[in-house]
Design a protein around this nucleic acid. Structure first.
Lengths: 181, 181
DNA sequence: GATCGCATATGACGATCCGGAATATGTCGG
DNA sequence: CCGACATATTCCGGATCGTCATATGCGATC
């Protein structure tokens, strides 16, 4: 799923600025299953505008850079639907924390535990964040509710596993800092 | 976690070729928490060799391109440990399937269901793949076993959620193909 | 009341990374 | 016998990331 398509998808929920789209992928409703950075969103929006998939309304703000408010055109909506109907590629996860945990035997045990505890805290924080969003569950689409529920289920399972196996893992690490037992 | 570090991590388990490292990220032990492609692995190995983090043993195979077998040096191992001790960045998930499911109201209901069923099948396949690897659980490090267990727990939770909420989701989709109820 | 950091908002840039094509050949199954 | 697949590497264009620069208001802290 390329960045232009992701932008079209974000705009299908209403007009927005590049900054707002970025935020939707950082904090907002898409936060948990895709990401995109400024450096790819802004060029994508420009190209989308040039090819007629979106329109840009330049709103000159006093003493601020002009806000460019993008909105989907009919053609853009058709393009979005076409992209959404392509067979999806496999999921990709990138987790520095899991790499560190996998190779925990190479770092000082207390640092590995620190990473693990941070990872647990991060999961608990994400669950709390999702719970807060659940207040607005009435206005969402079926898809949004479904994906939201999946997010909660997955993060809960991960947090529970991490907490339940923490002690065992710590024991194994400290019983064998660098030499084999 | 950049590709050079990932290569060093893979080589910490023993010498390997670029192709073998790629496979370890596709099928092998790292398959579920990071990825790297040829186009980034080979240049990374070259740079690593130039800077003394790995050595390359060129093995001229008859009638085949020379295999370059890379092995970690002491300096490379130190570099790996240094990288592993950096604070990890937040996890990133990229899921086309979840984007499609989120925007399921924009595509024909039967196609959305097809994507969902494919997604469920994919999860069940991954769980089976992890179960098969579990046979070799005796020789792994504590970190490897811990991460493996987490993977099983998370995929199981996801598969269960998807299966348990499939009916409800399909009902909601078909009761409202494009007009609001 | 001054300064620091944060949020809004966009643009530009180098470095990195991806994905696929090209190359070469052995093996296994139909 | 031929196609498909696995091994193994290289190259390249384009997509993408991350960060810095720009501009300014607003709240918190000292």
């Amino acid at each position: 799923m390329d960045v232009p398509t992701l932008c079209l998808a974000a705009l299908s929920r209403g007009p927005a600025t590049g900054y707002g789209i970025r935020k939707a992928f950082e904090d907002g409703p898409f936060a948990h299953f895709h990401e995109a950075s400024f450096g790819s969103i802004y060029p994508a929006l420009r190209r989308l505008e040039e090819t007629g998939a979106v329109t840009a309304t330049e709103e000159p703000q006093d003493r601020r850079p002009d806000r460019r408010i993008y909105a989907l055109t009919d053609d853009g909506r058709r393009r979005l639907v076409r992209a959404l109907r392509q067979p999806p590629r496999a999921d990709v996860l990138r987790s520095d924390a899991l790499v560190i945990l996998f190779f925990a035997h190479l770092v000082p045990p207390d640092e590995a535990v620190e990473v693990l505890d941070g990872y647990i805290a991060c999961h608990r924080r994400l669950i709390a964040q999702l719970d807060r969003k659940e207040d607005a569950r009435d206005c969402g689409t079926p898809g949004q509710r479904f994906v939201h529920g999946l997010g909660v289920a997955v993060y809960e399972a991960a947090a529970r596993y991490l907490e339940n196996h923490r002690g065992e893992f710590v024991d194994q690490l400290s019983s064998d800092p660098s030499k084999r037992g």
